[in-house]
């Protein structure tokens, strides 16, 4: 692998240790050129979401600064000084990033040989994100064992497993094992949820 000459599709993940030279990336022939009809302005420019995010965050800081109730007699630099500075820098960077993405659209490298209408597999992401959102909502209602089992099932399905029943059992086994080790063995407070309804007590 280390001597392979094909470029790593996801080399720079956490730290960007790899090549991020946009000029070089655009040298590559766009792999999706077979389906030109589907390619519009935003193709390769979905990266604009990053400056959008940054500008939104800067706006959040600005609004927060303006609505902040600062006690009388706070010395300089008060609680808003640093955020003002950050918001200003963030706007500048967002503008620079917009220019960057307009001038250098990203063309994702495809190694599988097939082309898809979207670069990202949105269905898989939806399973994972939806599964986690459901987990967060249902955790205290259903209890750890069921909610975590469900999360496991959703993610496994999203990433490509197709054995629904087997996965469900496996998910419950994993969540149960965690419950037994961490909840019962180590005393982490994991909710019982619906199981609590079967409990005696009052």
């Amino acid at each position: 692998m280390s001597t392979s000459s094909t470029p790593e599709p996801h080399g720079p993940t956490a730290g960007g240790t790899g090549d991020q030279d946009p000029a070089r990336a655009s040298d590559r022939p766009p792999s999706g050129s077979q389906t030109p009809g589907r390619w519009g302005f935003f193709t390769g420019r979905s990266g604009l979401v990053i400056p959008l995010l940054l500008a939104a965050f800067a706006t959040y800081l600005v609004v927060g600064n303006l609505t902040m109730s600062i006690p009388k007699g706070a010395d300089f630099p008060g609680p808003t000084f640093f955020p003002w500075f950050l918001a200003a820098v963030a706007y500048v960077l967002a503008a620079l990033l917009v220019v960057h993405y307009l001038r250098h659209p990203e063309v994702p490298a495809e190694t599988s040989g097939r082309t898809y209408t979207t670069f990202s597999d949105w269905r898989a992401i939806a399973w994972c994100v939806g599964g986690f959102a459901a987990f967060a909502v249902l955790l205290e209602v259903l209890g750890w064992v069921l909610a975590a089992g469900l999360l496991f099932w959703c993610v496994a399905r999203g990433i490509g497993s197709r054995r629904a029943v087997f996965d469900l059992v496996l998910g419950l086994v994993v969540s149960s094992l965690i419950y037994l080790t961490f909840g019962i063995g180590l005393g982490l407070p994991l909710p019982s949820g619906v199981f609590g309804l079967f409990a005696g007590g009052n």
């Binding site: 209890g143 750890w144 064992v145 059992v169 419950l172 086994v173 969540s175 149960s176 094992l177 419950y179 037994l180 909840g183 019962i184 019982s192 949820g193 199981f195 609590g196 079967f198 409990a199 005696g200 007590g201 009052n202």
Partner: peptide, 18 residues
């Protein structure tokens, strides 16, 4: 066995009542 044990402990840890 595992799921049963977890369910059992889920029930007991929720009980105890008053």
């Amino acid at each position: 066995l595992v799921i049963g044990a977890a369910a059992f402990f889920s029930v007991t840890s929720a009980s105890g009542g008053s």
